[in-house]
Amino acid sequence: MKPQSFAYVATSTVEEAVRALGEAGEDAKVLAGGQSLVPMMNLRLARPSVLVDINPIADLAGVEVGPARLSLGALVRHRSLELGVSPGALGRLLREVAGHVAELPVRVRGSVGGSLAHADPAAEWCLVAVALGAEIELAGPGGRRSLGAEEFLEGPFSTALAADELVVAVHLPLRAGWAYGFAEHALTHGSFAQAGACVGLELLDGVVAGCRIAVMGTSGRAERVPAAEAAATGRPAEAAPDAAAEATRDALAPTGYGEVTSDYLRALAAATVRRATAAAATGTVEAR
């Protein structure tokens, strides 16, 4: 099918885009990579009357490595992250995760800001943002504000974004002494995962001193699993994967759908937590 007619507005600054969204009203949509929005428009599941194209905004495509955080502009493409935007443990994690987001031609266009704004419950970048405690920076008519990932992602396909706001950047904390792991289960490589986990471990003399664990696929959005974090903390690194997996299985009660039962999802979540924790426990540690 073909999309319904719309007015096209190309913008070259954040201010211009925010103004265009304000003038166009509720019915306008931001166009980033178009890899989620345009399929919905082609199916006429989305019928925006105005598309505000942010692709020409050069300011949104940058990457900044600061002392305490890695900042990704909203328009940084999945493909750039796959090719590598920063060194160290976090850069490595992002490279690995990007390779699991869709297929190469989709990664060439799809953007990290678009993934967060779209808030698909199976989106890898939403999982990573929750697991690492990312800050999402938004721009609106009143200026800028930042929200934690858990506050920003409100539910399936639903965020705290107002109709005239733009995601401008995602800031990921750089934590010295931390190592990361990611695992997901998808029916074929590149397709949306049924479940996945992202884990950060602070390792001190082979013992887990700090831990952040998030899973996706078990509810309408990526969620931390505090019970698994508590179970892994204080343990020797080798014992952390099993402890975290067991706690995940006990803590979660996902709702099944179709042939995918609640028990199956619980087992998948636990298995991906085990694999992601094991990967972190043996992975590169962020330099101090």
Binding site: A10, L104, V108, R109
Partner: peptide
């Protein structure tokens, strides 16, 4: 992927890109 073309040398889905872009 039947519609794949190269945009500035990179493979993209031409069904998900508007000509104006």
């Amino acid at each position: 992927g039947a519609c794949t073309v190269l945009l500035d040398g990179e493979p993209v889905r031409s069904c998900l890109l508007f000509a104006v872009q």
